[in-house]
Design a binder for these strands. Sequence first.
DNA 1: CCAGGTACCTACTGGCGAGTAAGACTACTG
DNA 2: CAGTAGTCTTACTCGCCAGTAGGTACCTGG
Lengths: 211, 211
Amino acid sequence: MRTEGRAKRLPRAVRERQIMDAAVDVFSRLGFHAASMDEISDVAGISKPMLYAYLGSKEELFATCIRREATRIMEAIATGVEPDQEPDVQLWSGLRAFFGFVGENRASWQVLHRQASTQGGPFAAELADMRGRAVSLVAALLTQSTKAPATQHEAESLAAALVGAGESLAEWWLDHPEEPAGVVAARLMNLVWMGFGDLVDGNVWHPPSRR
Amino acid sequence: MRTEGRAKRLPRAVRERQIMDAAVDVFSRLGFHAASMDEISDVAGISKPMLYAYLGSKEELFATCIRREATRIMEAIATGVEPDQEPDVQLWSGLRAFFGFVGENRASWQVLHRQASTQGGPFAAELADMRGRAVSLVAALLTQSTKAPATQHEAESLAAALVGAGESLAEWWLDHPEEPAGVVAARLMNLVWMGFGDLVDGNVWHPPSRR
DNA sequence: CCAGGTACCTACTGGCGAGTAAGACTACTG
DNA sequence: CAGTAGTCTTACTCGCCAGTAGGTACCTGG
Protein backbone atom coordinates (compact mmCIF):
# COMPACT_ATOMS: atom_id res chain seq x y z
CA MET A 1 0.00 0.00 0.00
CA ARG A 2 2.88 2.35 0.76
CA THR A 3 3.10 4.97 -1.96
CA GLU A 4 6.39 4.85 -3.78
CA GLY A 5 9.24 7.32 -3.64
CA ARG A 6 8.64 11.07 -3.66
CA ALA A 7 5.67 12.02 -5.77
CA LYS A 8 5.98 15.66 -4.90
CA ARG A 9 3.77 18.67 -4.39
CA LEU A 10 0.36 17.37 -5.23
CA PRO A 11 -2.71 19.58 -4.88
CA ARG A 12 -4.55 19.39 -1.61
CA ALA A 13 -7.59 17.53 -2.86
CA VAL A 14 -5.48 14.68 -4.21
CA ARG A 15 -3.45 14.38 -1.02
CA GLU A 16 -6.60 14.31 1.04
CA ARG A 17 -7.87 11.34 -0.91
CA GLN A 18 -4.56 9.53 -0.50
CA ILE A 19 -4.62 10.20 3.21
CA MET A 20 -8.19 9.02 3.59
CA ASP A 21 -7.40 5.80 1.72
CA ALA A 22 -4.39 5.18 3.94
CA ALA A 23 -6.40 5.95 7.06
CA VAL A 24 -9.15 3.50 6.14
CA ASP A 25 -6.53 0.88 5.45
CA VAL A 26 -4.71 1.33 8.75
CA PHE A 27 -7.82 1.75 10.89
CA SER A 28 -9.35 -1.36 9.39
CA ARG A 29 -6.24 -3.41 10.12
CA LEU A 30 -5.43 -2.13 13.60
CA GLY A 31 -8.49 -0.46 15.06
CA PHE A 32 -8.76 3.08 16.31
CA HIS A 33 -6.53 2.99 19.36
CA ALA A 34 -3.82 0.72 18.01
CA ALA A 35 -3.52 2.73 14.82
CA SER A 36 -0.98 5.54 15.10
CA MET A 37 -0.93 8.77 13.20
CA ASP A 38 2.70 8.04 12.40
CA GLU A 39 1.75 4.86 10.60
CA ILE A 40 -1.08 6.49 8.71
CA SER A 41 1.13 9.31 7.51
CA ASP A 42 3.78 6.77 6.60
CA VAL A 43 1.37 4.64 4.56
CA ALA A 44 0.00 7.76 2.90
CA GLY A 45 3.56 8.74 1.97
CA ILE A 46 3.57 12.10 3.74
CA SER A 47 4.62 13.51 7.07
CA LYS A 48 2.53 13.85 10.16
CA PRO A 49 2.05 17.63 10.15
CA MET A 50 0.42 17.36 6.73
CA LEU A 51 -2.03 14.93 8.20
CA TYR A 52 -2.95 17.37 10.93
CA ALA A 53 -3.06 20.34 8.60
CA TYR A 54 -5.47 18.64 6.23
CA LEU A 55 -7.64 16.29 8.27
CA GLY A 56 -7.40 17.58 11.84
CA SER A 57 -7.07 15.40 14.93
CA LYS A 58 -7.09 11.64 15.04
CA GLU A 59 -10.71 11.57 16.14
CA GLU A 60 -11.79 13.89 13.38
CA LEU A 61 -9.94 11.79 10.86
CA PHE A 62 -11.59 8.61 12.08
CA ALA A 63 -15.04 10.17 12.05
CA THR A 64 -14.43 11.40 8.53
CA CYS A 65 -13.43 7.91 7.46
CA ILE A 66 -16.59 6.43 8.89
CA ARG A 67 -18.78 9.02 7.26
CA ARG A 68 -17.16 8.52 3.88
CA GLU A 69 -17.39 4.73 3.95
CA ALA A 70 -20.92 4.75 5.34
CA THR A 71 -22.01 7.02 2.54
CA ARG A 72 -20.36 4.81 -0.06
CA ILE A 73 -22.02 1.63 1.12
CA MET A 74 -25.46 3.21 1.50
CA GLU A 75 -25.21 4.65 -1.99
CA ALA A 76 -24.22 1.28 -3.36
CA ILE A 77 -27.30 -0.29 -1.82
CA ALA A 78 -29.62 2.52 -2.85
CA THR A 79 -28.36 2.23 -6.40
CA GLY A 80 -28.78 -1.53 -6.46
CA VAL A 81 -32.26 -1.83 -4.98
CA GLU A 82 -35.23 -1.93 -7.31
CA PRO A 83 -38.20 0.02 -5.95
CA ASP A 84 -41.79 -0.55 -7.12
CA GLN A 85 -41.17 -4.28 -7.12
CA GLU A 86 -42.53 -7.01 -4.93
CA PRO A 87 -41.05 -6.97 -1.40
CA ASP A 88 -39.04 -10.12 -1.90
CA VAL A 89 -37.46 -8.78 -5.07
CA GLN A 90 -36.59 -5.52 -3.37
CA LEU A 91 -34.95 -7.40 -0.53
CA TRP A 92 -33.09 -9.62 -2.94
CA SER A 93 -31.67 -6.75 -4.94
CA GLY A 94 -30.66 -4.98 -1.75
CA LEU A 95 -28.84 -8.03 -0.48
CA ARG A 96 -27.04 -8.49 -3.77
CA ALA A 97 -25.90 -4.90 -3.73
CA PHE A 98 -24.73 -5.16 -0.15
CA PHE A 99 -22.68 -8.31 -0.59
CA GLY A 100 -21.36 -7.04 -3.87
CA PHE A 101 -20.04 -3.93 -2.18
CA VAL A 102 -18.52 -5.79 0.73
CA GLY A 103 -16.80 -8.20 -1.61
CA GLU A 104 -15.06 -5.37 -3.41
CA ASN A 105 -14.36 -3.18 -0.39
CA ARG A 106 -13.24 -5.30 2.50
CA ALA A 107 -11.40 -2.50 4.26
CA SER A 108 -14.39 -0.20 4.07
CA TRP A 109 -16.51 -2.86 5.61
CA GLN A 110 -14.12 -3.58 8.44
CA VAL A 111 -13.62 0.02 9.41
CA LEU A 112 -17.36 0.41 9.54
CA HIS A 113 -18.48 -2.73 11.21
CA ARG A 114 -15.69 -3.87 13.48
CA GLN A 115 -13.97 -0.66 14.46
CA ALA A 116 -16.60 2.01 14.64
CA SER A 117 -19.00 0.02 16.75
CA THR A 118 -16.57 -0.49 19.60
CA GLN A 119 -15.35 3.05 20.07
CA GLY A 120 -17.67 5.10 22.20
CA GLY A 121 -18.38 8.74 21.55
CA PRO A 122 -19.24 10.22 18.19
CA PHE A 123 -18.05 7.25 16.14
CA ALA A 124 -20.67 4.87 17.34
CA ALA A 125 -23.22 7.61 16.71
CA GLU A 126 -21.97 8.06 13.18
CA LEU A 127 -22.24 4.36 12.53
CA ALA A 128 -25.51 3.96 14.37
CA ASP A 129 -26.90 6.60 12.06
CA MET A 130 -26.08 4.61 8.93
CA ARG A 131 -27.16 1.38 10.52
CA GLY A 132 -30.38 3.07 11.56
CA ARG A 133 -31.04 4.10 8.00
CA ALA A 134 -30.52 0.54 6.83
CA VAL A 135 -32.81 -0.78 9.53
CA SER A 136 -35.48 1.77 8.69
CA LEU A 137 -35.30 0.76 5.08
CA VAL A 138 -35.95 -2.86 5.90
CA ALA A 139 -38.52 -2.01 8.54
CA ALA A 140 -40.45 0.08 6.04
CA LEU A 141 -40.30 -2.75 3.54
CA LEU A 142 -41.73 -5.06 6.16
CA THR A 143 -44.40 -2.71 7.45
CA GLN A 144 -45.74 -1.77 4.07
CA SER A 145 -45.99 -5.33 2.89
CA THR A 146 -47.23 -7.16 5.96
CA LYS A 147 -50.89 -7.97 6.30
CA ALA A 148 -50.89 -8.46 10.04
CA PRO A 149 -50.72 -5.17 11.96
CA ALA A 150 -47.22 -5.04 13.44
CA THR A 151 -45.97 -2.72 16.13
CA GLN A 152 -43.15 -0.30 15.53
CA HIS A 153 -40.90 -2.30 17.82
CA GLU A 154 -41.87 -5.48 16.09
CA ALA A 155 -40.80 -4.37 12.65
CA GLU A 156 -37.75 -2.53 13.91
CA SER A 157 -36.37 -5.42 15.89
CA LEU A 158 -36.91 -7.84 13.04
CA ALA A 159 -35.14 -5.43 10.74
CA ALA A 160 -32.30 -5.16 13.25
CA ALA A 161 -32.03 -8.92 13.31
CA LEU A 162 -31.91 -9.07 9.54
CA VAL A 163 -29.30 -6.36 9.26
CA GLY A 164 -27.29 -8.15 11.92
CA ALA A 165 -27.58 -11.41 10.05
CA GLY A 166 -26.24 -9.66 6.97
CA GLU A 167 -23.36 -8.14 8.89
CA SER A 168 -22.49 -11.42 10.51
CA LEU A 169 -22.67 -13.33 7.27
CA ALA A 170 -20.43 -10.73 5.67
CA GLU A 171 -17.97 -11.32 8.47
CA TRP A 172 -18.12 -15.07 7.95
CA TRP A 173 -17.56 -14.45 4.29
CA LEU A 174 -14.28 -12.67 5.00
CA ASP A 175 -12.98 -16.02 6.23
CA HIS A 176 -14.39 -17.94 3.25
CA PRO A 177 -13.65 -15.63 0.33
CA GLU A 178 -13.88 -18.39 -2.25
CA GLU A 179 -17.67 -18.21 -2.23
CA PRO A 180 -19.17 -15.89 -4.85
CA ALA A 181 -21.18 -12.93 -3.62
CA GLY A 182 -24.36 -14.13 -5.28
CA VAL A 183 -24.29 -17.46 -3.48
CA VAL A 184 -23.83 -15.86 -0.08
CA ALA A 185 -26.58 -13.35 -0.76
CA ALA A 186 -28.92 -16.12 -1.89
CA ARG A 187 -28.34 -18.06 1.30
CA LEU A 188 -29.33 -15.13 3.45
CA MET A 189 -32.30 -14.44 1.23
CA ASN A 190 -33.50 -17.99 1.72
CA LEU A 191 -32.98 -17.87 5.44
CA VAL A 192 -34.87 -14.67 6.06
CA TRP A 193 -37.59 -15.14 3.46
CA MET A 194 -38.31 -18.84 3.67
CA GLY A 195 -37.08 -19.58 7.18
CA PHE A 196 -35.54 -22.78 8.48
CA GLY A 197 -38.98 -24.29 8.69
CA ASP A 198 -39.29 -24.31 4.93
CA LEU A 199 -35.62 -25.00 4.29
CA VAL A 200 -35.60 -28.25 6.21
CA ASP A 201 -38.53 -29.32 4.08
CA GLY A 202 -36.52 -28.55 0.96
CA ASN A 203 -38.47 -25.48 -0.13
CA VAL A 204 -36.26 -22.72 -1.47
CA TRP A 205 -36.81 -19.21 -2.68
CA HIS A 206 -35.70 -18.15 -6.15
CA PRO A 207 -36.04 -14.94 -8.11
CA PRO A 208 -39.24 -14.69 -10.22
CA SER A 209 -37.30 -14.57 -13.50
CA ARG A 210 -33.58 -14.91 -14.03
CA ARG A 211 -32.86 -11.20 -14.44
CA MET B 1 -19.14 -0.35 41.50
CA ARG B 2 -16.13 0.82 43.50
CA THR B 3 -15.64 -1.38 46.56
CA GLU B 4 -15.89 0.60 49.73
CA GLY B 5 -13.11 1.53 52.10
CA ARG B 6 -10.46 -0.91 53.19
CA ALA B 7 -11.73 -4.44 53.18
CA LYS B 8 -8.42 -5.87 54.17
CA ARG B 9 -6.37 -8.94 53.55
CA LEU B 10 -8.71 -11.22 51.70
CA PRO B 11 -7.60 -14.64 50.46
CA ARG B 12 -6.33 -14.82 46.94
CA ALA B 13 -9.30 -16.63 45.45
CA VAL B 14 -11.72 -13.94 46.63
CA ARG B 15 -9.55 -11.10 45.36
CA GLU B 16 -9.22 -12.78 42.01
CA ARG B 17 -12.98 -12.88 41.63
CA GLN B 18 -13.27 -9.20 42.58
CA ILE B 19 -10.59 -8.29 40.09
CA MET B 20 -12.19 -10.30 37.31
CA ASP B 21 -15.55 -8.65 37.96
CA ALA B 22 -13.96 -5.22 37.87
CA ALA B 23 -12.05 -6.08 34.71
CA VAL B 24 -15.16 -7.26 32.88
CA ASP B 25 -16.92 -4.10 33.93
CA VAL B 26 -14.18 -1.76 32.75
CA PHE B 27 -13.37 -3.65 29.55
CA SER B 28 -17.04 -3.72 28.62
CA ARG B 29 -17.40 0.02 29.12
CA LEU B 30 -14.16 1.20 27.53
CA GLY B 31 -12.80 -1.53 25.30
CA PHE B 32 -9.40 -3.15 25.54
CA HIS B 33 -7.11 -0.31 24.59
CA ALA B 34 -8.96 2.50 26.31
CA ALA B 35 -9.22 0.55 29.53
CA SER B 36 -6.26 1.13 31.84
CA MET B 37 -4.86 -1.19 34.44
CA ASP B 38 -4.95 1.73 36.85
CA GLU B 39 -8.70 2.04 36.45
CA ILE B 40 -9.29 -1.68 36.79
CA SER B 41 -7.28 -1.87 39.98
CA ASP B 42 -9.09 1.21 41.25
CA VAL B 43 -12.53 -0.25 40.56
CA ALA B 44 -11.46 -3.54 42.11
CA GLY B 45 -10.34 -1.65 45.21
CA ILE B 46 -6.71 -2.78 45.17
CA SER B 47 -3.39 -1.56 43.89
CA LYS B 48 -1.86 -2.27 40.54
CA PRO B 49 0.90 -4.66 41.60
CA MET B 50 -1.73 -6.98 43.05
CA LEU B 51 -3.35 -7.05 39.67
CA TYR B 52 -0.10 -8.08 38.04
CA ALA B 53 0.77 -10.54 40.76
CA TYR B 54 -2.54 -12.37 40.46
CA LEU B 55 -3.70 -12.08 36.88
CA GLY B 56 -0.56 -11.30 34.88
CA SER B 57 -0.33 -8.81 32.03
CA LYS B 58 -3.16 -6.80 30.58
CA GLU B 59 -3.47 -9.17 27.65
CA GLU B 60 -3.57 -12.21 29.89
CA LEU B 61 -6.22 -10.56 32.03
CA PHE B 62 -8.35 -9.75 29.03
CA ALA B 63 -8.05 -13.25 27.62
CA THR B 64 -9.01 -14.66 30.99
CA CYS B 65 -12.09 -12.43 31.07
CA ILE B 66 -13.16 -13.61 27.64
CA ARG B 67 -12.67 -17.24 28.53
CA ARG B 68 -14.66 -16.91 31.73
CA GLU B 69 -17.58 -15.07 30.16
CA ALA B 70 -17.62 -17.30 27.10
CA THR B 71 -17.80 -20.34 29.32
CA ARG B 72 -20.62 -18.83 31.35
CA ILE B 73 -22.77 -18.04 28.36
CA MET B 74 -22.19 -21.37 26.65
CA GLU B 75 -23.08 -23.18 29.84
CA ALA B 76 -26.25 -21.14 30.18
CA ILE B 77 -27.28 -22.16 26.68
CA ALA B 78 -26.30 -25.79 27.12
CA THR B 79 -28.32 -25.94 30.31
CA GLY B 80 -31.34 -24.31 28.71
CA VAL B 81 -31.55 -26.29 25.50
CA GLU B 82 -33.73 -29.40 25.38
CA PRO B 83 -32.14 -32.19 23.37
CA ASP B 84 -34.14 -35.09 21.89
CA GLN B 85 -36.87 -32.67 20.89
CA GLU B 86 -38.03 -31.49 17.50
CA PRO B 87 -35.54 -29.11 15.84
CA ASP B 88 -37.77 -26.07 16.25
CA VAL B 89 -38.21 -26.71 19.95
CA GLN B 90 -34.49 -27.14 20.42
CA LEU B 91 -33.86 -23.86 18.66
CA TRP B 92 -36.52 -22.13 20.67
CA SER B 93 -35.17 -23.27 24.00
CA GLY B 94 -31.67 -22.27 22.95
CA LEU B 95 -32.82 -18.80 21.98
CA ARG B 96 -34.68 -18.36 25.24
CA ALA B 97 -31.60 -19.35 27.21
CA PHE B 98 -29.41 -17.02 25.21
CA PHE B 99 -31.58 -13.94 25.58
CA GLY B 100 -32.21 -14.75 29.19
CA PHE B 101 -28.51 -14.77 29.88
CA VAL B 102 -27.82 -11.56 27.98
CA GLY B 103 -30.63 -9.81 29.79
CA GLU B 104 -29.07 -10.58 33.14
CA ASN B 105 -25.44 -10.12 32.16
CA ARG B 106 -25.09 -7.10 29.94
CA ALA B 107 -21.43 -6.52 30.76
CA SER B 108 -20.53 -10.11 30.01
CA TRP B 109 -22.18 -9.81 26.69
CA GLN B 110 -20.48 -6.58 25.74
CA VAL B 111 -17.01 -7.73 26.64
CA LEU B 112 -17.57 -10.78 24.51
CA HIS B 113 -19.30 -9.41 21.50
CA ARG B 114 -18.10 -5.86 21.03
CA GLN B 115 -14.64 -5.87 22.52
CA ALA B 116 -13.15 -9.25 21.86
CA SER B 117 -13.99 -9.36 18.19
CA THR B 118 -12.10 -6.20 17.32
CA GLN B 119 -8.79 -6.94 18.99
CA GLY B 120 -6.55 -9.06 16.88
CA GLY B 121 -4.28 -11.69 18.34
CA PRO B 122 -5.35 -14.37 20.79
CA PHE B 123 -8.56 -12.62 21.86
CA ALA B 124 -10.33 -12.98 18.60
CA ALA B 125 -9.23 -16.61 18.59
CA GLU B 126 -10.67 -17.12 22.03
CA LEU B 127 -13.97 -15.60 21.00
CA ALA B 128 -14.01 -17.26 17.60
CA ASP B 129 -13.71 -20.53 19.42
CA MET B 130 -16.87 -19.96 21.42
CA ARG B 131 -18.66 -18.51 18.48
CA GLY B 132 -17.56 -21.49 16.44
CA ARG B 133 -19.05 -23.84 18.99
CA ALA B 134 -22.34 -21.97 18.84
CA VAL B 135 -22.32 -22.04 15.06
CA SER B 136 -21.50 -25.74 15.02
CA LEU B 137 -24.38 -26.38 17.37
CA VAL B 138 -26.82 -24.67 15.06
CA ALA B 139 -25.25 -26.14 11.96
CA ALA B 140 -25.59 -29.63 13.40
CA LEU B 141 -29.20 -28.95 14.24
CA LEU B 142 -29.77 -27.88 10.67
CA THR B 143 -27.84 -30.70 9.04
CA GLN B 144 -29.45 -33.48 11.05
CA SER B 145 -32.95 -32.22 10.43
CA THR B 146 -32.86 -31.13 6.83
CA LYS B 147 -34.17 -33.41 4.14
CA ALA B 148 -32.34 -31.79 1.25
CA PRO B 149 -28.62 -32.65 1.19
CA ALA B 150 -26.79 -29.49 2.20
CA THR B 151 -23.10 -28.75 1.84
CA GLN B 152 -20.91 -28.07 4.83
CA HIS B 153 -20.55 -24.44 3.76
CA GLU B 154 -24.27 -24.13 3.28
CA ALA B 155 -25.17 -25.18 6.79
CA GLU B 156 -22.28 -23.34 8.34
CA SER B 157 -22.98 -20.02 6.69
CA LEU B 158 -26.67 -20.21 7.53
CA ALA B 159 -25.75 -20.95 11.12
CA ALA B 160 -23.36 -18.00 11.08
CA ALA B 161 -26.15 -15.78 9.82
CA LEU B 162 -28.47 -16.98 12.55
CA VAL B 163 -25.91 -16.50 15.27
CA GLY B 164 -25.23 -13.04 13.90
CA ALA B 165 -28.91 -12.23 13.88
CA GLY B 166 -29.06 -13.24 17.51
CA GLU B 167 -26.05 -11.12 18.38
CA SER B 168 -27.42 -8.16 16.54
CA LEU B 169 -30.83 -8.48 18.07
CA ALA B 170 -29.23 -8.69 21.50
CA GLU B 171 -27.42 -5.46 20.70
CA TRP B 172 -30.66 -3.81 19.62
CA TRP B 173 -32.19 -5.03 22.81
CA LEU B 174 -29.61 -3.17 24.88
CA ASP B 175 -31.16 0.04 23.56
CA HIS B 176 -34.73 -1.15 24.20
CA PRO B 177 -34.48 -2.85 27.58
CA GLU B 178 -38.18 -2.51 28.31
CA GLU B 179 -38.95 -5.51 26.12
CA PRO B 180 -39.06 -8.84 27.96
CA ALA B 181 -36.56 -11.50 26.97
CA GLY B 182 -39.22 -13.91 25.85
CA VAL B 183 -40.72 -11.46 23.38
CA VAL B 184 -37.39 -10.72 21.78
CA ALA B 185 -36.53 -14.39 21.57
CA ALA B 186 -39.90 -15.14 19.99
CA ARG B 187 -39.37 -12.51 17.33
CA LEU B 188 -36.09 -14.04 16.27
CA MET B 189 -37.60 -17.49 16.37
CA ASN B 190 -40.33 -16.38 14.02
CA LEU B 191 -37.90 -14.67 11.69
CA VAL B 192 -35.56 -17.58 11.28
CA TRP B 193 -38.09 -20.38 11.38
CA MET B 194 -41.01 -18.91 9.46
CA GLY B 195 -39.20 -16.31 7.37
CA PHE B 196 -40.53 -12.98 6.16
CA GLY B 197 -42.40 -14.73 3.43
CA ASP B 198 -44.69 -16.36 5.95
CA LEU B 199 -44.74 -13.42 8.32
CA VAL B 200 -46.09 -10.99 5.75
CA ASP B 201 -48.88 -13.48 5.17
CA GLY B 202 -49.64 -13.47 8.87
CA ASN B 203 -48.37 -16.98 9.63
CA VAL B 204 -46.52 -17.19 12.92
CA TRP B 205 -44.67 -19.91 14.74
CA HIS B 206 -45.63 -20.87 18.25
CA PRO B 207 -44.41 -23.52 20.65
CA PRO B 208 -46.23 -26.88 20.35
CA SER B 209 -47.61 -26.63 23.88
CA ARG B 210 -47.25 -23.75 26.33
CA ARG B 211 -44.46 -25.24 28.39
C1' DC C 1 13.11 38.37 -10.10
C1' DC C 2 10.91 39.28 -5.88
C1' DA C 3 6.37 38.55 -2.80
C1' DG C 4 3.57 35.65 -0.84
C1' DG C 5 1.21 31.62 -0.61
C1' DT C 6 0.97 26.64 -0.55
C1' DA C 7 3.07 22.15 -0.01
C1' DC C 8 6.06 19.86 2.85
C1' DC C 9 9.69 18.54 6.29
C1' DT C 10 12.71 17.33 10.72
C1' DA C 11 12.68 17.34 15.30
C1' DC C 12 10.82 18.18 19.28
C1' DT C 13 7.30 18.21 23.92
C1' DG C 14 4.23 16.43 27.16
C1' DG C 15 1.39 13.17 29.01
C1' DC C 16 -0.46 8.74 29.66
C1' DG C 17 -0.19 4.13 30.86
C1' DA C 18 2.09 -0.69 31.13
C1' DG C 19 4.91 -2.84 34.04
C1' DT C 20 8.31 -3.08 38.36
C1' DA C 21 11.34 -2.40 42.51
C1' DA C 22 11.49 -2.62 47.11
C1' DG C 23 9.61 -3.02 51.02
C1' DA C 24 5.61 -3.00 54.92
C1' DC C 25 2.03 -5.08 57.25
C1' DT C 26 -0.56 -9.25 58.94
C1' DA C 27 -1.24 -13.92 60.33
C1' DC C 28 -0.23 -18.38 61.09
C1' DT C 29 3.27 -22.02 62.75
C1' DG C 30 6.09 -24.01 65.83
C1' DC D 1 8.13 -14.72 70.19
C1' DA D 2 11.05 -15.64 65.95
C1' DG D 3 10.37 -17.07 61.28
C1' DT D 4 8.15 -17.48 57.04
C1' DA D 5 4.56 -17.22 53.74
C1' DG D 6 1.17 -14.51 51.71
C1' DT D 7 -1.22 -9.90 51.24
C1' DC D 8 -0.75 -5.24 49.88
C1' DT D 9 1.31 -0.51 49.09
C1' DT D 10 3.86 3.75 47.41
C1' DA D 11 6.54 5.43 44.11
C1' DC D 12 8.92 4.99 40.56
C1' DT D 13 10.92 3.82 35.04
C1' DC D 14 10.37 3.86 30.37
C1' DG D 15 8.45 3.73 25.82
C1' DC D 16 4.92 5.15 22.82
C1' DC D 17 2.20 8.45 20.59
C1' DA D 18 -0.86 12.66 19.84
C1' DG D 19 0.03 16.99 18.68
C1' DT D 20 3.30 21.25 17.49
C1' DA D 21 7.12 24.61 16.66
C1' DG D 22 9.59 26.40 13.38
C1' DG D 23 11.33 25.99 9.63
C1' DT D 24 12.61 24.80 4.01
C1' DA D 25 11.45 24.01 -0.95
C1' DC D 26 8.58 25.16 -4.72
C1' DC D 27 5.36 27.58 -7.60
C1' DT D 28 2.66 31.56 -9.34
C1' DG D 29 1.55 36.15 -10.41
C1' DG D 30 3.10 40.63 -10.97
